[in-house]
Amino acid sequence: MVTETPALVATPEERVLDAAVACVARWGLAKTTLDDIAREAGLSRASVYRRFPGGKAALLQEAGQRELRRALAELIEALETAETLEQVVTDGIVAAAAALHDHPAVRQLIEHEADVVRPLLAFDRITPGLLLAAELCGPTLHRFVPPRAAAELVEQCSRLVLSLTFVPGSVDLGDHDAVGRYVRAYVLPGVERLAAGPTTDPSTDPTTADHPGGTP
């Protein structure tokens, strides 16, 4: 693993991206301007443009990608100790939903700009985010399932987190037991026969005892 030396002083690019996130958290996506971001970062508008020639849209997209990478890195760390596939998937969904919910900029978007955000989730705009999630989190699941199934599983869970966050419904993503039940009902059956070991925690799954198909 490559260890990064923590930067003592943020680069101007990082300051701009931090400023963009702070502005969106405060004012939302639609109202945030490049001037706001420049002021927040303590830079001139011209120097922001020089670093991000694509303007507001490109800058916000890059800020979003960076936030996603950071959140996924934290998520992976939290999942390393999980002992079963059920645990890693359930913990992952709960933690990802919490990270989305607690992120100040995302929170602002969910609460005040649902009409701006929903379209961002359509027409393949989030495919890069889904692929990044699978690329970074997939290996966490290699202990339990083959690589291809792991990547597919991460994508499936990412979709469920987004869907249930933006269109709340059948399961409360903050309720660990409820998410565990949902995962056992809809997610694990598609992979359990591919799994390298027991997928579920016997103490939470009453069907394990009479489920001969579980472990080869």
């Binding site: 989730l121 393949d124 889904l130 990547a151 597919e152 469920l160 987004l162 009902a185």
Partner: peptide, 27 residues
């Protein structure tokens, strides 16, 4: 259906998966 399936919740689950994939191909 598999034993114990909650029809309403299952329909909601499939709806979410369907809409998600119509919107986004992913991998």
């Amino acid at each position: 259906l598999r034993p114990g399936v909650d029809l309403e919740e299952a329909a909601d689950y499939v709806t979410r998966m369907l809409l998600s994939h119509v919107a986004t191909a992913g991998r």
